[in-house]
């Protein structure tokens, strides 16, 4: 993550927090509604809409951000900690990395064995090949 990214997300995070707070206050006003509470309720509704408009403006700043759908569907929507997804991804990447590394090593050994065996059958060609390839063989 580059250093400019926290600044990029900061307005979005602030607006989201403001929106959540207004929603919470609306819930409190509505859950135990008082006769004189209509005016504050209308005010909160206006604030909610303006907060949504602010959030809508923020989307231009984060157009290039890509969020994996698996993270949203399988973790956030299921009430799970999204950091578990990051952990799983890293563990999968390390396992795959090890697997590919092993394959590369196996192919390297195979190449070495093949060149050795071919050198027995086609010594001249392999000598020339080694000359062309240099240290790579």
């Amino acid at each position: 993550m580059s250093s400019s990214q926290p600044d990029k997300f900061e307005p979005l995070v602030e607006n989201l927090e403001r929106f959540i707070e207004i929603t919470r206050q609306l819930g409190l006003v509505v859950s135990d509604f008082q006769p004189q509470g209509q005016a504050p309720l209308n005010q909160k509704l206006h604030m909610l809409v303006s907060s949504l408009q602010e959030l809508d403006k923020n989307k231009e700043q984060v157009q290039d951000v890509q969020v994996p759908l698996e993270l949203i569907y399988e973790y956030v929507d299921q009430g799970k900690n999204p950091q578990l997804y990051t952990k799983d991804c890293m563990e999968r990447a390390v396992a795959k990395n090890e697997l590919v590394k092993g394959k590369i090593e196996t192919f390297r050994r195979f190449k070495k064995a093949l060149v050795t065996e071919l050198g027995k059958m086609f010594p001249e060609e392999i000598d020339r090949y080694k000359t062309v390839r240099g240290s790579d063989t």
């Binding site: 509505v30 859950s31 135990d32 509604f33 008082q34 006769p35 509470g37 209509q38 309720l41 509704l45």
Partner: peptide, 9 residues
């Protein structure tokens, strides 16, 4: 449409 009656939900 958002006019509410007094009382708790």
């Amino acid at each position: 449409g958002f006019k509410l009656h007094p009382g708790s939900i």
